[in-house]
Design a protein around this nucleic acid. Structure first.
Lengths: 159, 159
DNA sequence: TATTGTTATACTCTATAACTATA
DNA sequence: TATAGTTATAGAGTATAACAATA
């Protein structure tokens, strides 16, 4: 009776157990988000952007004229990191800084036409990527999932 | 009629809009997971571990004797990065390498008693952290959320 | 004094490539 | 030849601290 190749408790992939780790929502979130973000990264990379820069561009687009500190808070970066993000967006011609007329310390941020076009194309592409990942869920389930996630976010981090 | 301080479209926090970004599940996942992982990081740090090392220790505990490449795949790291993770776990006395008796290239990984004790304490603490974050959800909702996330993971990344 | 944006810098995390020892 | 583990190294990504301009 030959013992194939698996004399140890966990020698092949199927055997891997999560133990108590499987009890954590945080673990499940990270697992899915890791995969999603690596696919996102591939797509945004086609336009020369990193995922964080895409998010920043999207926030600027949705909030024309916002300042860099506001952008920083929204994307969860330090303001110094945001400087480089905006530098890069300007270098690509996707966004621009204008001096705020009311507070000359501030830069008011705006997207360019080119930035809007690229953003639109990326949104479409990313929606496709996400749809492929979420095939397991019917539209109703998807709404439910979003509602649950929003409730967590609002209660725990905004409430 | 004084115009307080907000002459621009998005000058104070409440005004910030997500635009199409709000359509993406990936965005919601990342937002929550960012917060959770920074709180996790604080807690695991009390024991001298980074979140990735905690996960690795948990996986070793649940799969005694597994090899470093198996661990790598499970935690989503390159095998070279795993070397350093295991080095650190050994340094803390939380885990140990033993030569695999069946394949002398392999290291069979095991937790120590000390490692198990610390792991248990961390699990308890992290469960508390997570419970605080998830107060918005009733137990039923929580189960639902986990089920949805598992379905996504299995279908998209394992199926 | 406090805030906005900036620079310089350092640190963490992770991947790549080249190596060794085994298989 | 291929795989497990290791080392050295380099590249992201991000934070901290100090600074200039402005409020």
């Amino acid at each position: 009776m030959p013992i194939k190749d698996a004399p140890l408790a966990a020698s092949n992939d199927e055997d891997i157990s999560l133990g108590r780790l499987g009890e954590f929502v945080g673990f499940r979130l990270r697992r899915i988000q890791n995969h999603l973000s690596s696919e996102f990264s591939t797509e945004t990379g086609r336009y020369g952007l990193r995922p964080g820069e895409f998010s920043a561009l999207a926030i600027i687009s949705a909030n024309p004229g916002l300042s860099q500190v506001m952008l920083s808070r929204e994307v969860g970066l330090d303001k110094s990191a945001t400087v480089m993000v905006v530098d890069d967006l300007e270098k690509h011609g996707f966004a621009e800084r204008r001096r705020s007329p009311v507070d000359r310390r501030r830069h008011a941020l705006y997207t360019t036409e080119k930035g809007e076009a690229v953003l639109s194309a990326m949104f479409d592409k990313l929606a496709t990527v996400e749809r492929d990942v979420l095939t397991a869920l019917e539209p109703d389930d998807l709404h439910l999932l979003n509602a649950l996630l929003d409730r967590i976010y609002k209660t725990a981090f905004r409430g």
